[in-house]
Write a protein that binds this DNA or RNA. Structure first.
Lengths: 73, 73
DNA sequence: TCCTGATGTCAAAGAAACCTGACATCGCCA
DNA sequence: TGGCGATGTCAGGTTTCTTTGACATCAGGA
């Protein structure tokens, strides 16, 4: 798979949200634990729907969860 | 394919950006014309990377381009 | 009229995201 | 020591997104 350029702050947000476990977040947004791990580690960038759901769980704007680098394109 | 819950304002943004053509926007963000048409029409929601690229072309926050409904999840 | 540009549609194939299920490591604590 | 919870990994499949290529419609201008 293609190494994604998108970075994220999921891990920090999880801890800031009461030591929320990966499994809890995963089921909260409706994906599997493995999928969440992959996203959190930047293995690939999620779909827009999943991205929105994560932001909503933490009640922050999407750009607070995912960052896209300035350059390229 | 699954009807996406995500809506977008791409068409309006295109016109607000000097009557920008679909083909021009497509090549600007690095996808094909057909892909842009499908996204613009809400046939499916794009990847997070593509979403970010579109927002960057129009120089607006991602949430100004794509909207996710309140309810569900 | 005929041509061209902009938009849209369809099918088939490939790539990326997501799933299931199994297993492995690490830290903690009874 | 032995078990358990949290995290991470891998293989293999399914679904969704994206591409390629061909074609269809419509409006406007030469």
């Amino acid at each position: 798979m293609k190494p994604t350029k998108v970075t994220n702050s999921i891990r920090a947000l999880r801890f800031a949200h009461g030591e929320m476990k990966q499994a809890d977040l995963a089921s909260a947004i409706g994906v599997t634990r493995q999928t969440l791990i992959a996203i959190e580690q930047g293995k690939y960038s999620p779909s827009l729907e999943v991205a929105f759901k994560i932001a909503r769980v933490f009640a922050v704007p999407l750009e607070d969860v995912f960052q896209y680098p300035e350059e390229d394109l």
